[in-house]
């Protein structure tokens, strides 16, 4: 998977690349609008992550340029301004998703995976993790070939876990992934506990291994058994 990250803030660019590379992506970087434009015109990428507030040009032009090439590159735009207008315009001209700074890397990762799944026409649109088989389009989950019934939130949670395999997911990240900005009350963390334990129980009852590791007071980690 080849990615291009266009971001003028050096530190942001640095750790975003670190994180994405640890996920196994091949990443290229561009720190300016000009550089981003050149790279878009020269190479093909599976996914482009573009900050729209670049000092030497509006990132939305990059998205337009990319889309004029008729490429099926996935685009995620990132903006510090939480403005509805930018968001609507970005999505209108063909961006696949929109993230507002500051964002969680696990969230970016989950969004990238979802875009890549949707954009991959030849190939696997399904998610496999050992005995767990997930079909995002029909919202079905199979364990050892047998379907199990998950609620919408449990299903989202499972995909989020598998997308961020081996990563520490704090309750904060999970809350924001599942509920967005709505949920910021103290008791929301109890709801996370309820959802996670229901998902765990359903997976174990259907014969799957328990891949969810609790980190006391912090959150969870979805990981292979041997790493546990």
């Amino acid at each position: 998977m080849k990615m291009l990250v266009i971001e003028d803030e050096e530190e942001l660019l640095r750790f975003t690349l670190t994180y994405l590379r640890s996920e196994g992506y091949v990443c290229e970087e561009a720190a300016t609008f000009q550089e981003g434009m050149e790279k878009i015109n020269l190479y093909d990428y599976d996914c482009v992550i573009a900050d729209i507030g670049l000092p030497d040009g509006n990132g939305l032009h990059l998205v337009r340029q990319l889309k004029s090439k008729l490429s099926d590159t996935g685009v995620i735009i990132i903006s510090a301004r939480n403005s509805l207008e930018d968001k609507i315009e970005g999505l209108d001209i063909g961006a696949d998703d929109y993230l507002t700074k500051p964002f969680h890397l696990s969230e970016l990762n989950a969004r990238i995976k979802s875009i890549l799944r949707r954009r991959k026409f030849q190939g696997n649109k399904e998610i496999d993790f050992h005995e767990i088989h997930v079909l995002p389009e029909t919202m079905q989950t199979l364990v050892n070939g047998r379907e199990i019934a998950l609620t919408k939130k449990e299903f989202d949670l499972l995909i989020y876990f598998i997308s961020n395999k081996d990563k520490v997911l704090t309750k904060e990240y999970i809350v924001e992934h599942l509920w967005g900005d709505y949920m910021d009350t103290a008791d929301s963390y109890d709801f996370i506990y309820a959802h996670v334990s229901n998902l765990r129980r359903k997976l174990i009852e259907s014969g799957a291994h328990d891949y969810v590791k609790s980190i006391y007071g912090v959150g969870y980690k979805f990981t292979d058994l041997e790493a546990k």
Partner: peptide, 8 residues
């Protein structure tokens, strides 16, 4: 964003 990213 840098603080949060680094912490993550």
């Amino acid at each position: 964003a840098i603080v949060k990213g680094k912490l993550e």
